[in-house]
């Protein structure tokens, strides 16, 4: 089991610093790629999600054993899902960062339930080894905070930040560029 979620997380930084750094890196990488072939202004949205259980930070599982260990730790407990988002405006190159936290309480799960879930293949691309928007929904006892944050993107916060900045986003595809990872680490 990986004690630290992301391969790019530095042990010299706190979790919040790591998350902030990762979304800034992603946003600027996307900006460099997109700015060369876009004359119109655009906004980059990057996101990164981790699952925290006490001091443990869980990213994506590397294999079935990893997933089993993670779910075993999460059952019958409350953990915190943290998603960092970064919005970068290509016109001004100004950015804004936010970290949203949601508390999630798991039911008691039997080993058989965990095994069945792992066999479904769902855990493998997800931080904390579960997807609340999928079969993992049945593990959830309660959610305190933004449900969409647990899915991987706190949309309400995205909207709030856009409004706060006064950045108008039209919803046509040509004006929207998303660079984000889905419950990745």
């Amino acid at each position: 089991m990986t004690p630290n979620s992301s391969e790019s997380f530095s042990e010299n930084l706190t979790l919040e610093e790591n998350l902030t750094r990762v979304v800034m890196d992603k946003a600027w990488a996307a900006f460099s790629k997109l700015s060369s072939r876009n004359n119109d202004g655009f906004i980059v949205l990057s996101a990164d999600t981790v699952v925290c259980l006490g001091k443990l930070v869980l990213g994506k599982p590397r294999n079935a054993r990893d997933a089993k260990a993670m779910l075993g730790r999460l059952r019958n407990k409350t953990h915190c899902v943290k998603t960092a988002i970064c919005l970068l405006n290509s016109s001004t190159e100004e950015s804004v960062i936010h970290i949203e936290s949601t508390l999630v309480k798991f039911h008691r799960l039997t080993d058989a339930e965990i095994q069945k879930y792992i066999d479904s293949g769902e855990p493998f691309d997800k931080a904390g080894s579960y997807g609340i928007q999928g079969l993992g929904a049945s593990f959830i006892k309660s959610v305190d905070g933004d449900f969409l944050n647990v899915v991987g993107l706190p949309l309400r916060q995205v909207q709030r930040l856009l409004e706060k900045k006064g950045w108008n986003v039209r919803t046509s595809r040509s004006n929207r560029r998303h660079s984000r990872s889905h419950r990745s680490s």
């Binding site: 750094r21 800034m24 890196d25 600027w28 990488a29 460099s32 405006n89 001004t92 190159e93 100004e94 950015s95 804004v96 960062i97």
Partner: peptide
């Protein structure tokens, strides 16, 4: 996280030292 225009404006008002956190930016 501030734009270059923010910096320019502060510069025009006399500031000369700026602190940054992220390399690409």
């Amino acid at each position: 996280t501030k734009s270059f225009e923010h910096i320019q404006e502060a510069y025009d008002l006399g500031l000369r030292h700026f602190g940054e956190n992220y390399i690409q930016e």
